[in-house]
């Protein structure tokens, strides 16, 4: 039965995440960007049950929660949820608990950039199959975006465990989470820009009343809306190809919408007075996670070429 209604879980966790994001993440996003997520916010997220998304919820509701949290701040969202995501994927593979993830092509690297806000282990997933749980020594580094999640250069100091499983399903889990975060960032930028163009006046009229601007807002909404539905479908289907399709479109939508938002705000968009410049940087980093867009596109292409679509 085709039904887009939210389940009770979906609605409740969506409201919970939306409220948490509005109170704890959005107002503090610049603070978190500069200094990382505070212990108090971690504790609040844990108390609210937001760190248990992979054990307590189905994938559709989980994606809705991630999207709502990322609407507040994607960097803090990954800082809070990253260990739970890594842990869930480790469990999927039968590996010991991990703190962070890294998806790679070719041999597992011994030095890698990674988002490791807190933790000492990285689960490395090979696109071609096989995984390694590595104990790492981390050196914090500045990153283009998502700084609240703690960008680090990780050096492998020990291999704790490894396996030769096919990692497609594990990578799909990571892609789905990042894709949901991409939609949250895109929606945040769209909402902010839509409000701005209603207030700002140029040539004697609201920015929104200029067709070029109205069309841009509509195109941003289309991109976020279309990709958002693909993410929901991928969560519903639960297959690696669906997650690959969704990741490519969601990452593309986040990149497009956040860049357009900066453009619509003009010079103001470039200033740190407004959050859109941050969201543009965050989107760029999100689109590179879980192996990045090109790797997901490769899987998407394989599916489109090999499997008929009806």
């Amino acid at each position: 039965m085709i039904d887009f209604a939210e389940s009770d879980d979906h609605r409740l966790v969506g409201e919970l995440a939306r409220g948490f994001a509005a109170r704890q993440l959005r107002p503090a996003q610049r603070v978190h960007e500069a200094a990382g997520v505070s212990a108090a916010v971690y504790a609040a997220a844990r108390d609210a049950g937001l760190c248990d998304l992979w054990t307590s919820l189905g994938p559709v509701a989980r994606c809705a929660a991630i999207e709502e949290l990322a609407f507040g701040d994607a960097g803090a969202t990954l800082a809070i949820l990253g260990p739970a995501l890594a842990g869930a994927i480790a469990q999927q593979l039968g590996a010991p608990r991990a703190d962070a993830l890294h998806v790679h092509e070719g041999p597992a690297p011994d030095v890698m950039p990674c988002l490791v806000a807190r933790g000492e282990t990285v689960l490395q997933l090979a696109h071609a199959g096989g995984w390694r749980l590595a104990c790492v020594r981390s050196e914090m580094i500045a990153t283009l975006g998502l700084s609240a999640a703690g960008g680090a250069r990780c050096v492998v100091v020990d291999t704790l465990a490894q396996g030769g499983h096919d990692c497609a399903a594990a990578i799909a889990t990571a892609r789905l989470a990042i894709a949901a975060a991409c939609i949250g960032v895109a929606r945040a930028a769209l909402a902010y820009a839509a409000a701005y163009v209603q207030e700002r006046k140029t040539f004697g009229a609201r920015l929104a009343d200029h067709q070029a601007v109205a069309f841009a807002i509509a195109d941003m909404a289309i991109a976020a809306g279309a990709a958002g539905l693909l993410v929901q479908k991928a969560a519903h289907d639960g297959t690696p190809p669906a997650a690959a399709h969704a990741f490519v479109e969601a990452a593309g939508a986040a990149l497009f919408v956040t860049e357009r938002a900066v453009q619509l705000l003009g010079g103001h968009g470039y200033l740190k007075d407004h959050p859109v410049e941050k969201w543009m940087r965050d989107a760029r980093v999100l689109a590179g996670l879980a192996g990045g867009r090109d790797l997901a596109a490769e899987d998407s292409e394989h599916d489109a070429w090999e499997q008929p679509w009806t």
């Binding site: 809306g225 279309a226 990709a227 539905l229 693909l230 929901q232 479908k233 399709h245 490519v248 479109e249 596109a297 998407s300 292409e301 394989h302 599916d303 489109a304 070429w305 679509w309």
Partner: peptide
């Protein structure tokens, strides 16, 4: 293959819309 995949994703998103 890239072009096919792009169209496929867009058509699927269009159907959902």
């Amino acid at each position: 293959r890239e072009r096919f995949a792009t169209i496929r994703r867009k058509l699927e998103a269009g159907r959902l819309l």
